[in-house]
């Protein structure tokens, strides 16, 4: 009896300790995010370097975000990025799923060489190709245009097919065979057999390609180089707010903008991670 009591006590204290450890970790992890949130509600437009919490609270910077000036045109940026993200999302998702299906389900002579090429291309630093991509776009007169940017984001997306392929690999081959015997064309197997079964990876691909343009600033900065603020995406718009000459009057707005962008992205991200876990493990184990 006594022994049991002790065991239980031990258990409770270890549970408390365990959860306390997680709480401490979560606390450390969230400090910068809390700072972002707090600073965005500061009344002072520059960076507050003397106290963690703002001296004066206000929503003024959020209000300012929605009243564009020459530098900050947040609603416009948001719209631009949204449009770019939508197109990128459609094209990349299609490309990724198409390549993944072709390499996973179909068998054809060039399959292996193509996949090996993809691995090799992935080993090159992407930064290196950037200048050449810029001049390629320029020779098609596509710099400073959203079409160009969408092409940059989506054209090479086929290279990122591995996760989706891993998932398709786990779909039982017998299903495809059965469908073939029923007289289904390969295209119909793709659309009506494989895709419906692969909801996790489709959702994952859709969301991750939608998020790309919200996160990228290097390509956007290079391609939208006319300096016209109303044409920016959210990422470069916010990035430029931290320019040396602007940071003092825009830091709080940067935080406010960061919070506003993060909210929809976080929601999508939390949805995506669920499918990501399903997608990646489905592929890796049964490989």
């Amino acid at each position: 009896m006594e022994k049991k009591m002790k065991l239980k006590e031990n258990r409770t204290s270890s549970i408390v300790l365990h959860n306390l450890l997680i709480a401490v970790l979560a606390f450390i992890w969230l400090i910068p995010i809390v700072w972002l949130l707090c600073t965005s509600f500061s009344a002072y437009s520059g960076m507050n370097t003397s106290t963690f919490f703002p001296k004066e609270w206000s929503v003024a910077q959020y209000v300012k975000l929605f009243h564009p000036d020459t530098v900050a045109q947040f609603p416009q940026w948001f719209l631009n990025t949204f449009v770019i993200a939508c197109f990128t999302c459609v094209i990349s998702t299609m490309f990724v799923l198409m390549v993944a299906y072709a390499t996973s389900v179909m068998r054809f002579p060039m399959r292996k060489p193509l996949m090996n090429m993809a691995v090799i291309l992935n080993l090159f630093p992407g930064m290196l190709a950037m200048i050449a991509v810029y001049f390629t776009l320029k020779s098609f007169n596509l710099t400073n245009s959203y079409v160009g940017l969408i092409m940059v984001y989506s054209a090479s997306s086929g290279l990122g097919y591995l996760i989706a392929k891993g998932f398709f690999d786990t779909v039982p081959r017998a299903l495809c065979e059965a469908a073939r015997i029923d007289g289904c064309s390969e295209a119909r197997i793709f659309w009506q057999v494989i895709l419906p079964m692969s909801r996790p990876i489709v959702v994952y691909t859709v969301i991750s390609s939608f998020l790309g343009p919200w996160m990228d600033f290097v390509y956007a900065k290079m391609i939208l180089n006319a300096g016209i603020s109303s044409k920016y995406t959210v990422a470069i718009g916010l990035y430029k707010m931290l320019d040396k000459s602007l940071i003092n009057s825009y830091f709080t707005q940067f935080c406010a903008g960061g919070v506003l962008v993060s909210i929809p992205i976080s929601v999508l991200f939390v949805i995506m991670q669920r499918f990501y876990v399903e997608g990646i493990t489905g592929g890796a184990v049964k490989g």
Partner: peptide
Amino acid sequence: IQIGVESESTAKDTVLTDVEAAA
């Protein structure tokens, strides 16, 4: 006439990246 933002201190960096596309 379009007016773009480019700080005087960084004008060279942006202009030289692509002279033909600069303002």
